[in-house]
């Protein structure tokens, strides 16, 4: 705990600087930084699939009934 505290104090006492350091570690550091965050195993939930067959079922049923009705009409005509 004492070490942690001293590290925290050390971090607090360092004066601010705003420029970029350029040394032999720069390229490897950037590469490591990029690899740490760009890969993610998270995948969002699959969007809820809404069945699109309902309108077709209704329309199809309507067409079938219409055809049946036409058949009945034709039968009525031929029976005359």
């Amino acid at each position: 705990m004492r070490i942690l505290l001293s590290l925290a104090i050390l971090a607090m006492l360092s004066a601010p600087a705003l420029a970029c350091i350029n040394d032999s570690e720069l390229i490897s550091h950037e590469r490591e930084f990029k690899s740490q965050y760009q890969e993610s195993n998270y995948t969002p939930p699959e969007p809820e699939q809404i069945s699109s067959s309902k309108p077709y079922l209704l329309g199809g049923a309507g067409a079938m009934m219409g055809m049946a009705g036409a058949f009945v009409l034709l039968r009525l005509r031929s029976a005359r």
Partner: peptide, 28 residues
């Protein structure tokens, strides 16, 4: 979408019902 799914359904149903009714009324 609501119109074009329910319209053919009720239209077909009406055609069938009216045909059956007429068949019943005017059969030999």
């Amino acid at each position: 979408k609501g119109f074009f799914s329910w319209g053919p359904f009720t239209g077909g149903a009406c055609l069938l019902l009216s045909s059956l009714l007429m068949n019943w009324l005017f059969r030999s």
